[in-house]
């Protein structure tokens, strides 16, 4: 049994690394863009790299940059970064159910890497009935993390080399990737009502309260629909 697990660790890690490939491609422009914008906003190259390495959450890093430039109180910048990342509380509660066998230290390390795609792929593993092992999880997380940090550095060094990101479709790669993940969950009960409700909720809140709050608000609408109306939730009464 012990032999079996040590032997299966490397393939698990490699399988995780394979899951990271589309994420590496889709996230690269944002990692580079962050580095370039950070230097633009007055951060040193070291600070830009430190921010990517310590926070490791793209949207909130961008929001942080926007506020560094103005005359915003430091605590308010911190609060804004955390608010953008508040959706992770949901990921954490939901993905924690897949990692419950891990020892505490591995859990503590694993949750640091719980990005949007990391969470989605973790749930996909569970969807396919696969155990979410630490080796698989880190196989996916470490390449994403390493490149994210390197991209901040490269972006800060050569910020202005990508002259026409629009022509390369860079701004639309992440939505395509995320739609792929949404489709991957189509076997779940009540999938279509949840997707429809979240889509409507996020579009309305995007127009009314703006980005990035549409993520939490839109998701709340979809989750609420599941809590109130899904067959699994209703059969208790």
């Amino acid at each position: 049994m012990i032999l079996e697990t040590t032997h299966s660790r490397l393939p698990q890690f490699l399988r995780g690394a394979r899951s990271s490939v589309p994420v590496l491609v889709a996230a690269a422009p944002f990692g580079l863009l962050f580095g370039a914008l950070a230097v633009d906003a007055g951060l040193s190259i070291g600070e830009a790299v430190a921010m990517s390495a310590a926070i490791f959450a793209g949207a909130s890093q961008m929001v942080g940059l926007e506020l560094f430039g103005g005359h915003v109180a430091p605590w308010l910048v911190v609060l804004s970064i955390v608010a953008v990342n508040f959706r992770h509380v949901l990921y954490s509660a939901s993905a924690g159910r897949r990692l419950w066998r891990w020892p505490p230290l591995k859990k503590a390390a694993g949750f640091f890497f719980l990005t949007d795609p990391q969470y989605a792929e973790t749930e996909r593993q569970a969807e396919f009935g696969e155990e979410v092992t630490f080796a698989w999880y880190m196989g996916m997380a470490l390449p994403i993390y390493a490149l994210w940090v390197i991209e901040a550095w490269v972006g800060a060094l050569f910020g202005n080399l990508i002259t026409n990101p629009h022509a390369l479709g860079l701004d639309f790669l992440l939505p395509i990737y995320f739609l792929g993940l949404v489709i991957g969950f189509r076997q779940r009960s009540f999938w279509l009502p949840v997707v429809a409700a979240s889509a409507a909720g996020s579009i309305v809140s995007y127009e009314v309260i703006g980005s990035p709050w549409h993520v939490s608000a839109g998701a709340a609408v979809g989750i609420l629909v599941a809590v109130l109306f899904s067959p699994a939730a209703r059969k208790v009464e």
Binding site: V182, A226, V227
Partner: peptide, 16 residues
């Protein structure tokens, strides 16, 4: 049921 809806719900908001 709410937690099971989280991935599709959140990811949809990044697309729609």
């Amino acid at each position: 049921a709410g937690l099971d809806a989280v991935p599709a719900a959140v990811l949809t908001t990044l697309v729609a």
